[in-house]
């Protein structure tokens, strides 16, 4: 078992009102899964992904990654975990605009501090080739289309071979054709790299690509 989520609860405070974002979420993920979390806006998809990815804290419940409990970890320990275990793909790509495509993708490897310059170069160029961006490594993010930027974001998430890739609505800012291309790419990388993918979406077209679909509504898993 790669990931185990047990009785996860999360409440937001919106003004003077408490909003239950996640309610008793239980979820198991095996390695190399390609799973979509589907649900309407405000259903808790992003909150669930953020809690699993340790960039948000739940109030109660347990999260195990490779049998390691995450809830009691310090901020620095969680940062270390994210560095080694998770790859993130964001709806708005979140690339660093002052860095080139190459520099954006190399960032997670630089953080790991375990590869030489030539190893990093080989890995980054290889990954850019895999996502179809060979030859664009010196471009800046703003010189690329939305689809290309998301490919860079995917390359950045996968270059360190994480155990788990969390993608929050990765196709929401793209047209349907490009969206499908991106999901196809994620799927093929899931097969090639063996990383487990967990992505949120509310797009029916994208959902059909998932090997497993988890439906969420009002902070609760429906099926």
């Amino acid at each position: 078992m790669l990931l185990q989520v047990k009785n996860l609860n999360k409440t937001y405070r919106s003004g003077k009102v408490d909003v239950k974002a996640l309610s008793n979420i239980n979820l198991n993920l095996e390695p190399a899964e390609f799973t979509a979390i589907a649900g309407p806006s405000g259903s808790g998809k992003t909150t669930l992904l953020n809690c699993i990815g340790t960039i948000d804290r739940a109030e109660s419940g347990e999260i195990f990654l490779d049998n390691v409990e995450l809830m009691g970890k310090s901020r620095n320990e969680l940062a270390q975990l994210r560095k080694e275990y998770f790859g993130f793909i964001f709806q708005t790509y979140n690339l660093i605009p002052v860095l080139t495509v190459f520099e954006n993708v190399e960032m997670p490897l630089k953080l790991l501090r375990k590869y030489s310059g030539s190893e990093i170069k080989d890995k980054v160029l290889g990954m850019l080739n895999q996502v179809g961006l060979a030859g664009l490594e010196n471009r800046r993010p703003l010189e690329l289309s939305g689809g290309q930027q998301q490919r860079v974001s995917i390359a950045r998430a996968l270059v360190k071979h994480p155990k788990m890739v969390l993608a929050d609505e990765p196709t929401a800012n793209l047209d349907s054709k490009t969206g499908e291309e991106i999901v196809d790419l994620m799927k093929s990388l899931n097969e090639q790299e063996g990383a487990s993918f967990l992505f949120s979406t509310h797009d029916q077209l994208i959902m059909k690509h998932a090997k497993r679909l988890i439906k969420i509504r009002d902070g609760m898993i429906e099926s």
Partner: peptide
């Protein structure tokens, strides 16, 4: 960007 960097594993 700060959020992204923290998500990628940069410590505080």
């Amino acid at each position: 960007e700060i959020g992204t960097m923290k998500a990628l594993g940069f410590t505080d």
